[in-house]
């Protein structure tokens, strides 16, 4: 469950770059660790973030976790559907469960490829 065509942060966000726009969400591993999500808190369109900055949070019944921006940029779109249906993140983390689209302020740096991220998951898994 780690798509080859995405880039990853060690803090379990994924990122897909298309021109100067990056789509961001949390990984399958992250949603599995949290369990059934009950709430997703996202930034507002127009907010800007440095790479690695805290930009939102996700909650399940027994856990809560911050989401960190894997890239630097300005928020151009957020996934409004998650407000009423956070379960989309559980069901389809790389598709309908996407969270934010950024207009990139800089070329993404320091992100992992699928293989490197798989190693991170392996080390944290047990």
């Amino acid at each position: 469950m780690i798509p080859e065509d995405l880039k990853y942060a060690k803090s379990h966000e994924w990122c897909k770059v298309d021109g100067d726009v990056a789509t961001v969400g949390i990984t399958h591993f992250a949603q599995e660790q949290l369990g059934d999500l009950t709430f997703v808190e996202l930034p507002e369109v127009g907010d800007t973030f440095e790479a690695g900055a805290e930009m939102g949070s996700v909650e399940s019944v027994k856990a809560a976790s911050e989401i960190y921006s894997p890239v630097a940029g300005e928020v151009v779109e957020v996934n409004e559907a998650l407000a009423d249906a956070p379960e989309k993140v559980n069901e389809d983390p790389y598709g309908a469960g996407w969270m934010i689209k950024f207009k990139l302020a800089a070329e993404p740096a320091g992100l992992l490829d699928a293989e490197a991220y798989a190693a991170v998951v392996e080390s944290e898994g047990h």
Binding site: T38, F39, E59, S60, V61, K62, A63, A64, E66
Partner: peptide, 13 residues
């Protein structure tokens, strides 16, 4: 419910 706000889960946050 909404316990993710509370100290036993969020601790210092």
């Amino acid at each position: 419910t909404l316990q993710a706000r509370e100290q036993h889960i969020r601790r210092q946050k």
